[in-house]
């Protein structure tokens, strides 16, 4: 793992090379036809066989990417669908038929301000992002859809990725203390629900302090912190 700055060359060579976030292939007129440069500051990582390369860094602004699950807020109803705020530069569109068992007659009735857990089905720099609340192949919800009740916590994008990692300590630790529900969006929003408001507040506070953007508490410190909360 090495620290890398934008503009630095990455010596990535593989017959089936895949470049992840923060890397860009550029063509230059020099002796080597093309080069791979970093476009953001962070830590350079690669897979064991050197075919996949990416830069790990933290940021707060979400840029949509296909197949990522996000949490959005309905901001407008328009004819057949909805406009959803997912924290990116442009609001996304969500079709009224992109739900499980939705037909022309039977569509979900979402209001402005409702929360949805959805997957980005289309993300292109020149087009508005599109969302769907079901798996296009199986037409099953697979956990997507409207989020009722609960509370949305905003955090950094690194925190979201950490929470999706099954090896991360936070959710298993809290889950061991009391039952909770959580939906993690890749766009810096985490929806949580528990039986009592004070438990929801505790979860929200824990996510806040563990967030690398706002404290970066580790397991040991978090346990001490949890003991100060009345849960």
């Amino acid at each position: 793992m090495t620290t890398i700055l934008p503009g630095e060359k990455v010596d990535a060579q593989h017959v089936n090379l895949k470049l992840g976030p923060g890397l860009l292939q550029i063509s230059s007129n020099g002796p080597s036809k093309s080069a791979i440069i970093a476009t953001r500051a962070g830590n350079l990582h690669h897979s064991a066989n050197g075919s996949k390369w990416w830069i790990e860094s933290n940021s707060r602004r979400y840029v949509p990417a296909p197949q990522e699950s996000v949490i959005g807020v309905i901001v407008q109803r328009q004819g057949e669908g909805y406009r959803v705020d997912i924290g990116s530069a442009h609001s996304a569109t969500l079709d009224g038929l992109a739900f499980e068992s939705a037909t022309k007659r039977n569509k979900p009735n979402l209001k402005v301000g409702c929360l949805v857990y959805a997957r980005v089905s289309l993300a292109h720099k020149d087009m508005e992002p599109e969302l769907e609340c079901f798996d296009a192949q199986t037409r099953k919800a697979e956990g997507f859809g409207e989020l009722k009740g609960g509370f949305v916590v905003k955090c950094s994008l690194k925190m979201c990725r950490d929470l999706l990692d099954p090896k991360h300590f936070l959710l298993p630790l809290l889950g061991g203390k009391f039952p909770l529900e959580a939906a993690v969006g890749m766009n810096g929003r985490v929806w949580v629900n528990a039986k009592e408001p004070k438990l929801i507040i505790a979860i929200a506070r824990c996510i806040e302090v563990v967030d690398p953007d706002g404290g970066g508490m580790d397991l040991k410190a978090l346990k001490t912190f949890l003991s100060t909360l009345d849960i």
Binding site: P6, L24, R40, G42, S57, R61, V63
Partner: peptide
């Protein structure tokens, strides 16, 4: 650099 959401070439 800190924002990390804006691609840069240097």
């Amino acid at each position: 650099l800190n924002a990390g959401s804006i691609p840069m070439r240097g």
